[in-house]
Simulated scan of single mutants.
Amino acid sequence: MDREEVAAWLRLLETPHVGRESARRLLAAFGSADAALTAPTAARREVVTAEAAKALEQPAENLPALLDATWRWLTDESTGPRHLLTLGDARYPERLLQSADPPLLLYVQGNIALLNAHSIGVVGSRNPTPQGRSNALAFSSQLSQAGWTIVSGLALGIDGAAHEGGLAGPGQTVAVVGTGLDRVYPRRHLELARRIAQHGAIVSEYSIGTPPLPPNFPQRNRIIAGLSRGTLVVEAALQSGSLITARLASEAGREVFAIPGSIHSPQSRGCHALIKQGAKLVESAEEVIEEFPPEADAPPQATLTEVDESAAALDPLVDALGYDPVTLDALVARTGWPAPELSARLLELELMGEVARLPGQLFQRVSTG
């Protein structure tokens, strides 16, 4: 894409009063961004509202600055390759093109081939339980080892763990973000975003300079669902953006998977609701993979290690913990051990990563399989 074509696309998509639907109609009617802009206003009025048609008569005041910033971003490959993809680009991801509302323009940094790879969306709570975070990391790592690309949203919590798991295998990971690609949100994921750009890919439909605006994040969920052959929800409350992603995946005819959790955990209720609505309950990465035809060029599927029950049998305290959060008093009752002895042993298990300390003086066993 040359600078003039970039300018035409930015003018079409960033002009006030011209939304995605109006831009889509203009492209369908005139064939290109430039043709839509050079068409007579009267001709545009036959396709979109009079307000939108008139708004395109003159470039917006901020267009020159936006074009300069976009061109600098696009031509600076010091941190890896960068791309702008339009709907007509042969490299545009095929699955996303088949979704209900594909972005008209995609900004991509990193390995563009991953956008057409065999991919799974992995989403969930920004405030997961330790077990939820462990599940996201383990499932994503095993799926990536099996050649699947992990698609998520770079948010705190489950998303971050999913990306880390994706980076651990050859499948790698794609982050779909709700800001311009010249910034990282949340800032805590600055280093994670750097590694994703280097080994995977970061994608956005938002122009350079776009800050983290709340409405953008539900919108980016449709891209996660659209890029993926299926979506795995690891943990989610009933009012969760992850359920939006799952709904969009289901509406697009894609598979939806959910990991069950404790009936006492608010972070499991969204997954349980999805399962009641027909999502597949999964307990291992293999159960996700087996829903899709095997790929001839995929690496051998790794096995997600189950909880080592023999180890639990050797440690009566781990066995007594079960899998739900439990209080110290309940453990005293279950084991008959004095509270000081239990506290000391729980601290040892916590340092070993086998037990998590939760708010409210609760303890929970962590499966690291």
Rank of each mutant, 00 (worst) to 15 (best):
Y107F: 15
R183G: 08
P325N: 11
P214K: 14
P186Q: 09
A285C: 00
A356H: 05
Q267R: 04
L243I: 02
S32I: 10
D315Y: 03
V48T: 12
L154V: 08
P59M: 10
G230L: 02
R334V: 01
I150C: 02
A162L: 01
A29T: 13
E14Y: 03
R91V: 15
A33Q: 09
N111M: 15
Q267A: 06
I158K: 00
Q198S: 10
E306G: 14
V6L: 12
S125V: 05
V184L: 03
G180C: 04
T129R: 12
A339N: 01
L63P: 14
R247A: 07
P93I: 05
P338C: 00
L85C: 12
S78H: 01
A113R: 15
A100G: 09
R20W: 14
E61Y: 09
T86I: 15
D159V: 03
H163T: 01
E290V: 14
D76C: 13
L13I: 10
G230T: 01
Q364P: 04
A285E: 01
R45P: 09
Y206E: 03
K54R: 11
L349N: 06
N111R: 13
H83V: 06
L96P: 00
T149V: 05
V366Q: 02
T368I: 07
P260S: 09
S134V: 07
E61C: 08
P325V: 15
A52Q: 05
L66Y: 01
E348I: 15
R187W: 13
S141I: 07
A344T: 11
V48A: 12
L85D: 08
A302W: 09
L96E: 05
L84T: 14
S125T: 11
K280L: 14
L67C: 00
L26E: 03
H17C: 15
G160N: 13
S268C: 03
L84V: 15
A8F: 07
E14P: 00
W73T: 01
R3F: 02
E291N: 07
E348A: 14
Q58R: 15
A42I: 01
H17V: 13
T41P: 04
E283F: 15
Q142S: 10
D159M: 04
L317P: 04
Y92Q: 09
P128G: 07
L12H: 11
A236F: 08
A344P: 02
S343Q: 12
K276I: 02
T231C: 13
D2C: 12
V184W: 01
P359Q: 07
E309V: 09
P340M: 07
H199L: 11
P218I: 03
R222M: 07
P212C: 10
K54Y: 05
S268W: 01
A33L: 12
T38V: 15
A296K: 08
E348L: 13
R126K: 15
A201C: 11
L238G: 12
D2K: 12
E57V: 05
E354Q: 13
E51K: 10
R91C: 14
L104T: 15
K54P: 00
D319M: 14
A356Y: 06
